[in-house]
Design a protein around this nucleic acid. Structure first.
Lengths: 225, 225
DNA sequence: GAAAAAAGTCAACATGGCTGACATAAATGT
DNA sequence: ACATTTATGTCAGCCATGTTGACTTTTTTC
């Protein structure tokens, strides 16, 4: 039933020669920018398809418990940064307080997240996963890690660093430092918590990549507004 | 104001030591799956942040004309596959006829897309971009290509193929063949249309990558339902 | 004691998914 | 010829998740 043949080739329902050869408009049309070098449209599309599949893994589980992607993101980052403040989550997700509030309330109400007042600053609500929440978050990480691991294995031994650097380089320059710091902080914390010498962890050479790995006074991964 | 410091380090509003060191729950917690090898959480997060920035480029333009991401996707694929059928678009996007119908109608009404009945099968509506639509689609491709080109340049000469293969490998195995075919078909078509020998186009070695580059009778990039 | 910060909430709205139910035109099969 | 299937479109309504704007409460900071 109607596969992806986009009429273009093996799908002429009758004797249709595929596609009407487009009236020869002005030049450039489709490429990467006509005279700017390679057309990178293939990468654009691969990124689209890859990301779609990437997020679809958790989606199946989420559907079963009446949650959506928004819940997944919250669970993920709280898992990564136990004790984080609501504001921090807002900065990472770049959504509004109200949007976050909705899913956060559900996660707290249903016992996936524990929200306690800060000890030193009691205005803050510090977020932690409950064991239930941790189990779920772990499921997601496992699923997505599987996909990534498989992909990297198919790409050979050096691919991990190249992929990592590529993804970093795809991030807005002004966000790279903060993002890399964020990840590094979470990793550190995880290490500290883990029984010393648990699994591998190929030290991410965050320094060498693009130069923007920065040590600025922590500019924001800019909040939405 | 409230940067991404996630309380964890340079943000203790008062004398807060960052984070409450989490009560030492059971092992694995955060890593990639506890005893499965590297934790690939960093890649998970980088993919998230990278993709968010990647789609944000077009977003700015879209906002100015009252369109959304859905419009972008439609424009993009119609640009890539001039004369494609509505069904083909549905297969690619994996959304419902009704969802597509909404944005497609707007695009047609506002003169970005031209929808004409097929010659051989007059039930079909074959979709083409108008010059106006082409210009817009071209803007998007240019924007996103810029980002990708910059990223690849930062990653060195071989990165393009590695990145490409990584993205392909991130796609569900059963979708890879169809996706690569789809891209190949679009590229072919574009070449045929372009004044012979226009810009570079580093021949995508679709064959060598993962083995699944297949030549099956074109299985679908599965429709949503 | 005033001002600012952290969090929460209500109300209303936009976007873009979804299902279900139909309608029409055209192609296909018997 | 007629029944069925296919391709498309459309109405109506629902859901998830984003947005603004306005306000409150608690607590910290100046």
């Amino acid at each position: 039933m109607a596969d992806i043949n986009v009429s273009l080739s093996p799908r002429p329902t009758k004797g249709d020669p595929g596609v009407p050869a487009r009236s020869g408009g002005m030049g450039g049309g489709i490429g990467g920018g006509m005279g700017e070098g390679d057309p990178l449209v293939d990468v654009i599309e691969l990124f689209f398809f890859a990301y779609r599949n990437f997020v679809s893994d958790p989606d199946e589980i989420l559907q079963g418990i009446g949650f959506g992607r928004a819940h997944h993101r919250v669970l993920h980052f709280v898992n990564r940064h136990p004790g984080m403040r609501v504001t921090d989550l807002l900065d990472i997700l770049r959504i509004t307080k109200q949007s976050l509030g909705r899913v956060l309330r559900e996660l707290v109400d249903q016992g996936f997240i524990d929200s306690r007042a800060g000890a030193s600053d009691r205005r803050q609500r510090l977020l932690h996963l409950t064991p239930k929440g941790e189990a779920l978050a772990q499921q997601f990480v496992t699923l997505q890690s599987h996909r990534i691991r498989r992909a990297l294995e198919e790409c050979g031994p050096d691919s991990r660093e190249t992929a990592r650097r590529f993804l970093v380089a795809m991030i807005d320059p002004e966000d790279r430092g903060p993002v890399e710091k964020l990840i590094a902080r979470a990793d550190q914390q995880a290490e500290a918590k883990t029984p010393p010498g648990a699994s591998g962890k190929a030290a991410p050479p965050a320094g060498g990549s693009s130069g923007a790995t920065g040590n600025r006074p922590a500019p924001p991964v800019r909040p939405a507004g």
